[in-house]
Design a protein around this nucleic acid. Sequence first.
DNA 1: GGCATTTAATTGTCTGACAATTATTTTGGC
DNA 2: GCCAAAATAATTGTCAGACAATTAAATGCC
Lengths: 241, 241
Amino acid sequence: MKSATPEKSLSAQIADAIRTAIVDGRLLVGDRLPSEAELSDQHGVSRATVREALKRLAAQSLIRTERGAFGGAFVNHLSYDAARAQQVTTSTLLLGMNAISFQVACEARYALERSCTALAAERRTDALLDRMRTEIDTQSTPDLSDEAFCASDVGFHRALVDCAGNEVLSYHLAGSVEAMQPLMNMITFTARSRAEIIDLHRAIVAGLEIRDVASVDRALATLEAYTITLGQSVLKARATR
Amino acid sequence: MKSATPEKSLSAQIADAIRTAIVDGRLLVGDRLPSEAELSDQHGVSRATVREALKRLAAQSLIRTERGAFGGAFVNHLSYDAARAQQVTTSTLLLGMNAISFQVACEARYALERSCTALAAERRTDALLDRMRTEIDTQSTPDLSDEAFCASDVGFHRALVDCAGNEVLSYHLAGSVEAMQPLMNMITFTARSRAEIIDLHRAIVAGLEIRDVASVDRALATLEAYTITLGQSVLKARATR
DNA sequence: GGCATTTAATTGTCTGACAATTATTTTGGC
DNA sequence: GCCAAAATAATTGTCAGACAATTAAATGCC
């Protein structure tokens, strides 16, 4: 559409050109880019400018660089883990910068998470149910720190979304849910509330075991409502202090 | 934990240091970083190295740079649009590189999209319903190109997730769905299939209008099944060719 | 006060150089 | 011939210094 590039820097333009080549498939995973010297010649810019462009691409994990003879810049294979890590970084920052209310975040999180229940009930495996039970055991440990409790909570929900047996769905959900964890962690969990949450986790596992979608959905809805209640009481406690 | 940084380049180390400062809140949105010359001095490296570090951060939209007196690098406000664009880039690349089957992608897409139906039925506004109807009109245009049809399809589904009235949910869903569009576009839509899809879009709008979650869910499920059928017939046609 | 000009600060780019790294090649010893 | 060590060449990482381009602020003129 728009041909007038609004004065982007040369390094940004070159980065865009290479990025487009990768996304369009003209550069395949594992391909080696021309050396910095060659790229300088091709684009008619200095090596410093080319290097800035390459650093931009490296920051997006699109390429990696290796030193030495026959080294250079190579198109990266983007793994699910690397992609999720980036998604979490971006989303976490976004949520942190935009003054999201706890309620809105919580609502979004559980809405997303519920999208896997039907598939999860259908396809759950014993191995994944065991992973969930192990996390529940961890969460039941007395004197567990809040961080450890939350980490185990993330692990539990990761296992839940993995039950859907759809790697694409797992990637999106795990990333989304993980990114919202910092907001969820506004809550400090009392022993009482931990027990409540663990009970609901047990209900989720039980529901998956007998492949009863409705009971899993109910447990998640209850968990959402309970989490929002906890969040509100925290806010209230802060307000009156 | 691990203190031994495995020989990262100086520009990467400096980028990490600044990134951490931003994420931890020591640098706030709008803050101006020291000038490149000052950063060079502080870190004891050349200006070129500092610049490469800054380009890495700029690639993640963490900072922007302005030229001129009192210009410099500023901590960016990460907008929903910018964050979604990045998420789409990462996810699109991930899906393109990992040989995802059409069926898996389709299943994930509609599972995610269904997560907004309950909230959407409750909160849909007339303005958003109108936006959806406008897209349906566009899709009904005779001689519409495949690209235009798909673009309008994305617009329709964006409006649908916006109906949930939860910006965080919209961000995650819109990004996820948009990232899967290239896979969806494996299908070339015949006039017959377009009519079918448009009918289902109409059913979705009608369901939202009367706030009937079940009918919206049914329409989406039908749309998913129909899309998978279309995908399979495309694959079959390719196989026998 | 308002407008044009100058100034200073800062990023964008270029050039040339050297250091560090690493696969390949050559050499030397046996 | 074969193996190890050394030299080689290609390439990225870093540095220093320079100049161009841009832009806000200060200055001067009316």
